[in-house]
Design a protein around this nucleic acid. Structure first.
Lengths: 216, 216, 216, 216
DNA sequence: TATGAATGAGGGTTCATTCAT
DNA sequence: GATGAATGAACCCTCATTCAT
C-alpha cells in the first residue's frame, strides 16, 4: 500500500515536494501524538523528530521551533473544534441536538489537545489569537443558528443571543469526560433537553414535536 | 542584624514550629504569585525561594519539589473553586443566582491558576485527583441544592439532576473573560436567567416572582 | 530562464572546465566577501554556496571544506599583502615612500581579511605556512631594496638589514586605522620620514634632496 | 602544600568569598590556557569548566558566557600589554630601550592571546573598546615619554609625536616571533638602535654616550 | 536548621558534511 | 555533475536538586 512501491524495478520516490510535505506531516502528527500523550512542555523537539523517524536537525528544517509546530498543528486541526451546524428548526430539536452533541463530543475527545493549551495562552499571545479566533467561529456559528430560529419566532422572546451562545459553547466545549464516571447512555439526550429549554419556550417544543407526530 | 539576634538570651518571637509554618506559607504564597504571573513550568524553585526570602535549599526542606508545592497550594486555595451555596428557593431565583454568579466569577478570576493546571493533569494523576475531588464537591453542592428544590416540586419533573448539575458547573466554572469583548452589565442576569430556565418550568418562575411581589 | 537554456540545441557558452572554474571562482569570491563581512567562524558553508548561487553540496565538489577554501582564497589574494617595490634610490625617498605607503595601506585595507586570520594560525600550521611564506616574500622584497641602497653607500653603515626590514614591515603591515582618530593628511609623509631616518643618515637625505633641487 | 590541609583535624575551607574567588580565578586561568592553546572559538565553556575542575553549570555562575570570561580575562591581564616606562633620557638610550624591549617582548609572548583577539573585534564592539583602551594607554605612555625628551630639546625638532608613538607601538607590539627563524642575540639592540634613530638626531646620541663615557 | 554554591543531565538549536535523486 | 534535504554530533545554557558549611 506504500506509495513507494509501484510496478517493477522500484520507483522509490514521490516528487520532492510531496516527500517534504509527507515529512512535515509526519512531524506534525508526531507532535500531536506526543503533546497529547505527555503534554507540550514535556515533549522535546528531539522526541518529536525521533517519533517521526527523522533526525533532530530535520525538525528545524520544517519548523522554527516547537511552538511553531504547535501553531501549525492547531491550524491543521482546529476545525475539530467547530461543532457541526445545529438544526434548531428540525422537527425534533432535542434529538437533532443530541446527535450533534454526540458527534462533536467524540471529535473533541479524539482531539486531545485542549488540556495542553491553557498554560501556553498566558505567555503566547499569537497562540492565544489562533485559539480565540477558533472560539469566535464556534460562537458565531451557534449565534447564527439561534438567530435564524429567533427570526421564526421560535425562541424565548427575551433572549440575549450572545450570552446564550456562550453558555451553549461552554457546555459543548467541555467534554463529558469530566464526570465520566456516570457515562449513562442518555447523557446526550439529557444535555440536549437542557439546552433546548434555554432556547425554546415549552409550547414551541410541544408544537414542534406535534408537527413531528403529524408528519409521521 | 538578623531578626533572630537581639541582645543576649533573646526570645524568638515565634516558637520554632510557627516560624517554620510562616516560612512554609511564604513559600506557598510566593509559588502562587509566581505560578499565577508566569505559569508553572516557567517558574523555578530558586525564584520561589528568592521571592519568599529564603535560600534555595530551604525550599526543599518544606517541599519535596515544585510539584508538591503546587499540591499544597491547591489544597490551601481550592475552596475558591467552590461556588457559594445557591438558594434556588429564594423568592427571586434569577436575581439570587445572578449575584451568586458574580461573586463566584470574581473569586475564580482572582484565583488565577486555572490556566496553569490543565497541562499538568495529564501527567500527574495525583494532582488530577486533587482537582477532580474539588470538582466533585462543586458538583455535589449544586446537585444537592437542586435536589432540595426538586423535592419541593419546583423544578421540571423530568430532570436528570446529574447532567443538570454538570451543565451548570460548566457554565459556572468558565469565567466570563472568554467573550469579554462584550462585558455587558447584564451578563450575570442573562446567565442566571438561562440557568433558571434549565431548572424551573416557566410557571414556577412566574409563581415565585408573584410571591415576591406579594411579599413586598 | 537559465543561461543554459536558449533555443534548441544550445551550445553551452563555456566548455565544461571553464564553467567549473567560474563556479569555483564564484565560491572563492563569496567566501572572501563573507569572511570579510562576518568573520571566518561565523560564516557557514551553506551561506557561501548560497551567496555564490550554487547548492550546498556543490561547495564540497570544489573544496574539501571551509578551511580549504580559505587556503585557496589566500593563495589567490595574497599578492595584496606584498607592498609595492620601494624605490629608495629615488631623488626624494621620503615622498616616494609616502606614496608607496599610501597605495599599500589602501590595498591592505581593501583586503579585509587580516583580522580573520590570526586565530586560525594557532591551530592550522598549513595555513600558518601559507601566511608565513607571504610574509617572507614581503620581508625579502624590503630587504633587497635596502640592500641595493646599502651597496650604493647610502644607508647607515651599521645597519642590520634583517631587523630593519622587519621593523619596516611591522609599520607597513599594520594599517593606519588603529589610531584613525587623528587621520591627518600628513600621516603618510610623517611615517615615511620616520622610516627614512631609520634607513638613511641625515646627510644622505640632505644630499638626495639637493640633487633633486638641482635636477629641477 | 594545599590550602586545605593544616594542622590536625582538617579545616578544609577558605571563607566563602575566598573560595568563590579562587574558583573564579581557576576558571579565568583555564580560559586563558585554553584560548591560548586552541583559540577562542575552538574552546567551549564545558572544556573551560572541566579544565578548572568544576561542573559546567558552575561556569555560568561566575560568567554569563564565554565572551564575558574573555573580557574579565583581558581586564586581568591587560597590564601585560603596557610596555615598561621607557627612559629616553638615560645616558645610553639604546641600551635602556633594548632592555625594555626585551622585557616587554617576553611579557607579550608569555601572554599569548594576541592572536586570539582580532577576529572577535569586528563583531564585538565592547571587546574592541577594551582593547582599544589598552592601546590608547600604550600610545599615551610612549607619547608622554617622547614629549619629555622633546622638551629637553633632545629629539628631532620636526617630529610628529603622534605618528612616532604609533610607529614605535607597532614595532613594540608585534613580537619578534614573526621572523623568529633568525633570533639573533643582538635583535633587541638592533631594534633599539632603529627606534633611537627615529627619535634622536645623531648628534644627540653621540652627546648622550659621551656623557655616559665621562660619567664612568 | 538554613544556606547558596555546585552539580550535571538534558533541552533547544546549529551546521559541516553526506548522499539519494 | 548538481542538488538540497537529511543527518547527528556538539554547542550553549538552564535549573531541579544536593550537600558541605
Amino acid at each position: 500500500m506504500s506509495d513507494d512501491e509501484k510496478l517493477v524495478g522500484e520507483f522509490p520516490f514521490l516528487p520532492k515536494q510531496e516527500r517534504a510535505q509527507a515529512k512535515r506531516n509526519a512531524l506534525i502528527e508526531s507532535g500531536y501524538a506526543l503533546f497529547h500523550k505527555k503534554g507540550y512542555e514535556q515533549t522535546t523537539a528531539k522526541e518529536i523528530a525521533a517519533h517521526a523517524g527523522v533526525a533532530t536537525g530535520t525538525f528545524y528544517r520544517y519548523f522554527s521551533d516547537k511552538r511553531q509546530l504547535l501553531m501549525s498543528l492547531l491550524e491543521d486541526k482546529i476545525e475539530t473544534f467547530l461543532p457541526p451546524e445545529i438544526s434548531w428548526l428540525s422537527s425534533n430539536p432535542v434529538d437533532a441536538l443530541a446527535s450533534s452533541l454526540e458527534i462533536h463530543y467524540n471529535r473533541i475527545h479524539e482531539f486531545g489537545l485542549r488540556h495542553v493549551l491553557p498554560e501556553l495562552l498566558s505567555k503566547d499571545s499569537e497562540l492565544a489569537a489562533v485559539l480565540d479566533n477558533a472560539r469566535k467561529r464556534i460562537h458565531a456559528r451557534i449565534f447564527n443558528g439561534l438567530k435564524k430560529a429567533g427570526e421564526k419566532g421560535l425562541t424565548w422572546d427575551d433572549l440575549d443571543l450572545d450570552t446564550l451562545s456562550w453558555a451553549i459553547m461552554m457546555i459543548v466545549e467541555n467534554g463529558l469526560d469530566k464526570t465520566s464516571q456516570s457515562e449513562k447512555p442518555s447523557a446526550y439526550q439529557d444535555i440536549a433537553k437542557l439546552i433546548c429549554r434555554m432556547v425554546f419556550p415549552p409550547r414551541v417544543l410541544v408544537q414542534l414535536s406535534k408537527n413531528d407526530a403529524e408528519a409521521e
